[in-house]
Write a protein that binds this DNA or RNA. Structure first.
Lengths: 226, 226
DNA sequence: GCAACCCCTGAACATAATCTGAATATTAGG
DNA sequence: CCTAATATTCAGATTATGTTCAGGGGTTGC
């Protein structure tokens, strides 16, 4: 999952992106409205954390522009305490949730997880695919109840596939959502990660669709394959 | 489905054609208005992605020429941000949709699927022909609810026939829409693929019309065959 | 500050799926 | 029956995917 943070206070921005990275997200940062708007327009984020008081273009305008352009990623806005009117116009502009500063990291992370899972049409933080259990909250996964140790990138890959289970996901899409901005994929990292994941969670849980990509399935619940 | 991309920026052009190929389309590329116009005039594309700012002949003129010549393929135009007047004249010239740069691959792909299916007179990404279900988004097909594994070329063939179901489709037409430019068909690949498809989805779903081509039908709902 | 470790990356190499073209068999139509 | 059209089969050729591994950057524990 890849997240954009638009925040001008350098301290807060660093804290936020660190906390998010620790939770296993790929994070890009913008420190003003213009850059933030451009990045949101250009890159396929899974969620955005948007401060409202920003240099150059304010947060509400950025959000409005995105929505006018048809961008649908979920947006969590940060407001100063007591700025009730801002919250209202934030929701009007298409925000999905808000958080008043100051806040605990824990709360931010919980809300991010919530908007991510809502966007993907799930109702809880964990996803079961047959005997495979993916816990996005604890960033852990289990097969038949046994905990599986995954590295951070392995978990990102699994988590993204779990959110979109059953669908074929192209290598390009995986790269875009697992890595942050400056990454030029000209190597076979995705294949390597898929290989490692398969060894850990079971080869047949990730189906490869030649020429298109990969798909996460429940191997015990395939109607019948030819 | 075969798509023409007319775009002069080499980076964007490569990205586009890669993303489209990933989605299972056959793709040709032109990097200026003149070549683009010629290719669109000569080859039977199912859709065109057309940048407006092009060397030699600009995009709007290319589109106007095509429409004046009676070309009906759907055209998705790419415009720079804020060039609202361009969008308007694009629609006037006969565009089917537009996308402002920059954009996400996923959005482009969604719009391509949308104009393709509109052009074929469908309203969703999936098509049912009796017990056969073709899902163009997931690139999958089912018979009686059972998933059928198809290779990428097999799926292209099926998808094209499903889009034009009930009509007889000649071998030449199939070759032209399933392969991109540089493919010299002097062999019997189409027969081979039809054979393989038949084995997978059921022999009687593809009818042979001697001397003309093939037709995709619902074997359980044939008005009356002689 | 150092050593030990873990993980990521990119490349080289190995394997497997699928495509192609041709040869051969079968069928429909006269 | 004869012929042309279509089907089937199959063996390379070709590409996509898998696997392995070494080097390096970063982190942890001492």
């Amino acid at each position: 999952m890849r997240i954009l943070v638009v925040e001008d206070d350098p301290d807060l921005s660093r804290q936020l992106s660190e906390a998010l990275k620790d939770s296993g997200y790929a994070v890009d940062v913008a420190d003003n409205g213009e850059d933030g708007h451009f990045m949101g327009d250009t890159e396929p984020y899974d969620a955005v954390v948007l401060d409202l008081g920003l240099p150059i273009i304010d947060g509400i305008s950025v959000l409005q522009k995105w929505r006018a352009d048809g961008k649908t990623f979920p947006v969590l806005i940060l407001t100063a305490r007591d700025q009730w009117s801002e919250k209202v116009s934030g929701f009007d502009a298409g925000a999905d949730d808000y958080l008043t500063k100051p806040f605990h990291h824990e709360e931010l992370l919980a809300r991010i997880r919530a908007i991510l899972r809502r966007a993907a049409g799930h109702t809880t933080d964990s996803i079961d695919i047959g005997a495979l259990h993916v816990d996005n909250r604890a960033a852990r996964c289990f097969v038949d109840g046994m905990p599986i140790k995954l590295t951070s990138h392995e978990f990102r890959l699994l988590s993204y596939m779990a959110m979109h289970r059953g669908r074929v996901i192209s290598r390009t899409e995986l790269v875009e959502h697992i890595y942050d901005q400056d990454f030029d994929r000209d190597s076979n990292t995705i294949e390597v990660f898929v290989g490692r994941l398969r060894r850990k969670i079971g080869t047949d849980r990730i189906e490869t669709v030649r020429g298109l990509g990969y798909r996460l399935i429940d191997p015990d619940n395939v109607p019948n394959k030819k």
